[in-house]
Design a protein around this nucleic acid. Structure first.
Length: 443
DNA sequence: CTGGGGAAGGGGCCC
DNA sequence: GGGGCCCCTTCCCCA
């Protein structure tokens, strides 16, 4: 006969003991904050602690101290609360750090829930995007502003994914016991499962589309296939960690001040052997790969290569980018002909020696000789429709990307530019204030 | 088949 | 934390 409430009461009792610091035999030091816990509970919950404590238990039967600098005390609070309650308090703000910490601690279930949470958030973003794109294809210039809300919205706390019915409080994912066994939600259709696209697949997709179709409409957003998110979900939580991913483990008894660094999920070695100050600074580990970065913002940026999120669409051609600077670079190169180099002979051209050729949404420069050789000097020279070619300058942020209405219509109509070349005179001295500038959709 | 060039994309880091 | 620049690698196209 099995009494189902026993597990719950047992966990409850252990949690109570933890709060009252009863029988706690393990101290976890996170950025100066001390957490008390029971070794057996940590051992049973985390592959990392299992490894650590099995090692230290050989050395001592007394209390153990583990020191972490890889995540914040707040993050560890979420982890530890989960260990002792089965409730994981995820929000859009903490999910990345929690997942990173869970990866660190080799807590498979937590990682899975975080992934589901993120995927759910992305799905919300996708829905918003779909809704956004279905509203209007013409009102593009104003939509860029809204889109940032859409993308960021998916990560907000209020966008928390649906959780188990047994979860007592909103925004908390229940794990453990029956609640966890029932936790198997897939928020939307299979489309969501295909949302994630591996880097390679995604790139192939986008390149083919842009090259073969010339224009990548919003509806051409890559249909994300099975991703690293999915792939990694199948991996054990204790996947290989890089050498940089290291934490100090201090054993208080036999070697009071001799620390151990814990890397690669299995090795315990004296701290002094490999820990350097530089490695201490590298503290944000990607939960999907072995990459470690110093700044949280860099991790956030890096994660886009796993999630496939591309919040920055080029307004001229529709191609989407994961980073604003890539969009800017793309725009300058492809649509603004910023390079003062003849595309054919590679010679430097000036406003006197060369002209800009517009080929669909693409622009590049040709010297007068190459223009004549190409036999396209008879193509109409449309000075009226000339768009500025100035490289965007600082302090001109608002105006530099503005896309003249005439050009807009040009761009939208002409997709296969091979039959519609427009030559423009190069005039870098033109007054910027009067320029009609091409403007990508910057958030 | 191969090498060069262009474009995309990722990381580091400064402001 | 975001924006942006620089550097590097990878991929693809083309001669």
């Amino acid at each position: 006969m099995e009494i189902s409430s026993h597990q719950f009461h047992l966990l409850q009792q252990l949690n109570e003991q933890r709060r009252q610091d009863l029988f706690c035999d393990c101290n976890i030091l996170v950025e100066g904050k001390v957490f008390k816990a029971h070794r057996n509970v940590l051992f049973a919950s985390s592959g990392y602690f299992k490894m650590l404590l099995s090692q230290s238990s050989k050395e001592t039967s007394q209390s153990t101290t583990a020191t972490f600098q890889a995540f914040s005390p707040d993050t560890f609070t979420v982890i530890l609360d989960f260990v002792y309650s089965g409730k994981l308090s995820l929000t859009g703000q903490n999910v990345i750090e929690v997942m990173s910490a869970a990866s660190y601690l080799q807590m498979t279930d937590v990682i899975s829930v975080c992934k589901t949470f993120i995927k759910s958030s992305l799905d919300i973003s996708e829905k918003e995007k779909d809704r956004y794109f279905s509203l209007s294809d013409k009102d593009v210039s104003s939509n860029g502003v809204d889109r940032s809300c859409v993308y960021s919205g998916g990560w907000r706390a209020e966008s928390s994914p649906p959780h188990s019915h047994s979860s007592p409080d909103p925004g908390t994912c229940m794990m453990g016991g029956n609640a966890w066994s029932n936790f198997n939600y897939y928020p939307t259709s299979q489309r969501n499962a295909q949302q994630q696209l591996s880097k390679h697949e995604q790139r192939q997709d986008s390149i083919k589309k842009s090259r073969h179709l010339g224009l990548q409409q919003p509806s051409d957003i890559p249909h994300y296939k099975s991703s690293k998110l999915e792939d990694r979900a199948a991996e054990p939580a204790g996947h290989a960690a890089p050498a940089e991913e290291q934490v100090h483990i201090d054993t208080e008894v036999e070697a009071p001040h001799v620390g151990y660094q814990f890397g690669q999920g299995a090795e315990v070695m004296p701290r002094g052997l490999a820990v350097s100050q530089q490695e201490h600074e590298m503290r944000f580990k990607c939960p999907f790969c072995s990459h470690v970065v110093k700044r949280k913002a860099d991790l956030k940026r890096h994660l886009r290569c796993h999630t496939g999120e591309r919040p920055y669409p080029c307004e001229a051609c529709g191609k989407r980018f994961s980073r604003l600077d890539h969009l800017s670079s793309h725009f300058r190169t492809i649509h603004q002909a910023c390079k003062p180099i003849c595309r054919k002979c590679k010679r430097h051209v000036t406003e006197l020696t060369g002209q800009v050729v517009q080929e669909g949404t693409r622009r590049y420069r040709l010297c007068n000789e190459c223009l004549a050789e190409a036999g396209i000097d008879s193509i109409r020279i449309d000075l009226e429709a000339e768009a500025p070619l100035e490289f965007p300058q600082d302090g001109d942020k608002d105006s530099r990307w503005h896309y003249g209405e005439d050009n807009r219509s040009d761009v939208e109509i002409v997709e296969d530019g091979s039959t519609d070349l427009v030559i423009q005179q190069v005039d870098d001295s033109e007054d910027e204030a009067e320029e009609k500038e091409v403007k990508p959709n910057i958030r």
